[in-house]
Simulated assay, not measured.
Amino acid sequence: MVSYKEILASNALINDSTAPRIAVFVGGTSGIGKFTIKALVATGTTVKIYLVGRKNSKERTQAFIEELHALNPKASVIWTEAEVALLADVRRVCDIIKSNESRVDLLFLTAGYAPFGTRKETAEGHEVVQALEYYSRMLFILRLLPLLGESGLARVVSVLGGGLETTWLIDLDDWDLKRPGNFKVYRARLQYLAMNTITLDKLARENPNVTFIHSWPGSVNTGNVRRGWDANSIIGGTFSRVFEFLTWLAGFSGDESGQRHLFEITSAAFGGRGVPWIGKAGITTTEQLAGGLFLVNYKCDYTLNAKVVAWLREKGQEKLWEHTQELLGPYF
């Protein structure tokens, strides 16, 4: 475990040469993304942030942007409105960024929530949470890869469940869980996080100049637990209150979560670039000297989850890649 004291000490050393200069935060209007943006801006470094969020969060986000500018006048935060569950909107946002930037140093992906209720689909026909937690994330990565490759320091962080992969209940023949009775909250969570790791592992092998991190944040009260339930669900309301109490009791505060993820995006513990790290360096699933995929847990420790990842790679990687290319193809 990397102690919180060590994390704060490392973060105190962040400067313009170790912090991302151009960052894209998808899902940064609330929760872990928002906590991490605030921690990054508070370092006082020169940073330009594209903050991607839904229309209904614009008003409260403007107040947050003003707060960030007061905290660090050298920080530029650009509000970028999008419904990222829609792949056409993801394509549009990526085109905006690509038209304005020649490089991206950080892509931080947190949009999503637990699908506790009945299956709901977007206008494009994809289950909403899967669209947020897998398809839109992969489309952001794939469309911004040319800019990430130009950075030399780029990191992609997908916050979901790195290290929790399992072979149990993963359906390699029904990626979208459309077969009758296949869509259940526990199966969807395992399926979506495994899909993240399978594809990030492939992309990391093919792009050694980019570091990929699949982060498991642990318990953080972001409010998202309330989003997945059907409206007026008594069970949902009760579960949400109990979960939020337990998180308050034993989970991380927003500030600590932000600092831990700031460590992930700036420390040389992951990828050998960034703030010097004298502790034990992380090891990638891809066993690369540069870049690679790190599975990082809430203690900022890495895990290889070697047997499971090897099984997923062998049994599902090419099948998932073909499926992903077919589905995302129209949005390139």
Rank of each mutant, 00 (worst) to 15 (best):
A19T: 04
Y134C: 03
G53W: 00
G251F: 01
N207D: 07
D230C: 14
T284C: 03
G149Y: 01
F332V: 10
K184E: 13
D174I: 10
V24G: 02
T61M: 10
L71Y: 08
L109V: 04
A70R: 13
R137Y: 05
R103I: 06
E326Q: 15
I49S: 02
V185E: 10
K315F: 12
W277E: 05
D255Q: 14
T266S: 12
G236M: 08
E264F: 03
K98D: 06
P115D: 07
R179K: 15
G44Y: 06
S102E: 11
I170D: 01
N56A: 12
T110C: 06
A42I: 09
G282C: 08
G218R: 00
K319L: 14
I78R: 07
L13D: 09
F212H: 01
R119S: 14
E6L: 10
R54C: 08
A306W: 11
A231W: 13
D255Y: 10
T197Q: 03
D201V: 01
A42D: 10
E244R: 08
G117P: 07
S240T: 14
I22Q: 02
T36M: 02
R60I: 14
V90E: 01
N15P: 05
E121A: 13
T211P: 00
E318S: 15
T197M: 02
F239I: 11
Y113N: 07
A19C: 10
I22V: 11
G223N: 12
S30M: 09
N11D: 09
N221M: 08
S219A: 15
A306K: 15
T166A: 09
T197W: 00
V77T: 07
R21G: 08
I141S: 00
F294L: 02
K202V: 11
I22R: 01
A114V: 12
T247L: 08
Y4I: 11
L8P: 04
Q317L: 09
D105E: 06
R92N: 10
Q317K: 09
E101A: 05
G291E: 02
D255F: 09
G272H: 02
Y134M: 04
L106Q: 01
C300M: 09
I278K: 14
F108I: 05
A42R: 06
W248E: 15
I234Y: 12
D171Y: 08
D89N: 13
K48A: 04
K98S: 10
K178E: 13
T266A: 09
E206M: 09
F332I: 13
L8Q: 12
A131F: 03
V129Y: 03
N224I: 15
T247W: 05
G282F: 03
V129S: 07
A268W: 03
S253P: 10
F263V: 03
C300S: 13
G329E: 14
N11E: 07
V309W: 00
K120D: 11
G152I: 04
W248R: 15
F183C: 12
D230N: 15
G181T: 13
T36R: 00
H126I: 11
M1N: 11
L40M: 13
L86A: 11
Q191M: 08
S30D: 12
P73G: 12
T303Y: 01
A269E: 03
A39E: 04
D89K: 07
T222L: 04
D89S: 12
V185L: 11
I213P: 00
T118S: 15
I22K: 01
S158D: 06
N305A: 14
S267Q: 05
